[in-house]
């Protein structure tokens, strides 16, 4: 294995990730876990694992600060990573990570647990504009998670079940709480699970498309984040925008990779 030259950690609301990259910015090591409510503890554990691979620059080991590699933290819990050399927002990190993976600019959609974002990336990889969902959770992964729970569909089967039907009902509420009660009333009226799920996906994607329009769509359209594992998301996004959706190889690691790439610049 090549030597880890920089580290990036992305502490998200649903998952936490850490990535180690080599001199060329390739991912050569990573860990991905469900987020622990005790962020500090999880970060400590990640860094323990990281230290097995390489010493970390900013953590004084036996009083020697100069040994090791830099670590950049991102994600909503970034400020809790006291060991980080620096913190950078997930906007900048995602853009950097995806640009590195795909080699071109465009419009990146990242649907996270509590935040969704749309980032306009220039051909040189710079952030040109961005938009995030408002306070309400309607445009995020949590929206689907809650209602899928209510319908008794396991998260892993969500996409499969959704795509198994051509029928669809329209869900008008954009508020998670109201959408849930809308779903309950649909169930009460005897509507099957699949068309409801498809309607929910459509409703979520429509919110995301509205964010894309506010930033302005610069093709190609790219998608990252945990929800990529749900095949219904890219498919419906494609239907709604008429654009082919490109997904990087490690869609969940883009933030951490971006952080590591920024860390690598500190070495160079």
């Amino acid at each position: 294995m090549a030597e880890v030259r920089a580290l990036g950690i992305d502490v998200g609301s649903t998952t936490a990730k850490i990535v180690g990259i080599d001199d060329d910015g390739r991912i050569i090591w990573h860990v991905l876990e469900q987020a622990d409510p005790q962020v500090g503890k999880q970060v400590e554990k990640f860094l323990e694992l990281a230290r097995e691979v390489t010493p970390i620059l900013s953590v004084p080991i036996e009083g020697e600060r100069e040994i090791g590699v830099p670590l950049i933290a991102t994600g909503y819990g970034r400020k809790l990573v006291h060991q980080a050399t620096r913190t950078v927002t997930e906007i900048t990190c995602h853009a950097r990570g995806v640009f590195r993976e795909l080699g071109h600019g465009g419009t990146l959609v990242d649907i996270g647990g509590q935040d969704s974002k749309v980032i306009g990336i220039s051909p040189k990889g710079e952030v040109v504009d961005f938009s995030m969902n408002d306070k309400c959770a309607a445009g995020t992964g949590r929206f689907l998670e809650n209602t899928a729970n209510r319908l008794g569909v396991h998260l892993d089967r969500l996409g499969e079940v959704t795509l198994s039907t051509v029928e669809e009902v329209s869900i008008s509420s954009t508020c998670t709480v109201f959408a849930e009660s809308e779903v309950i009333s649909l169930i009460a009226h005897g509507v099957a699970t699949e068309p409801i799920l498809k309607g929910l996906h459509r409703s979520l994607i429509k919110r995301v498309v509205a964010m894309i329009r506010t930033v302005g769509l610069r093709p190609p359209l790219m998608l990252s984040g945990g929800v990529v594992r749900n095949p219904a998301i890219p498919q419906i996004l494609q239907e709604e925008t008429g654009e082919e959706v490109i997904i990087p190889r490690h869609p969940q690691l883009m933030g951490a990779l971006g952080a590591a790439l920024i860390a690598l610049e500190l070495v160079e």
Partner: peptide
């Protein structure tokens, strides 16, 4: 805006 109309409620 019917999105602000919660039918059940």
């Amino acid at each position: 805006d019917f999105r602000c109309f919660a039918e059940q409620q």
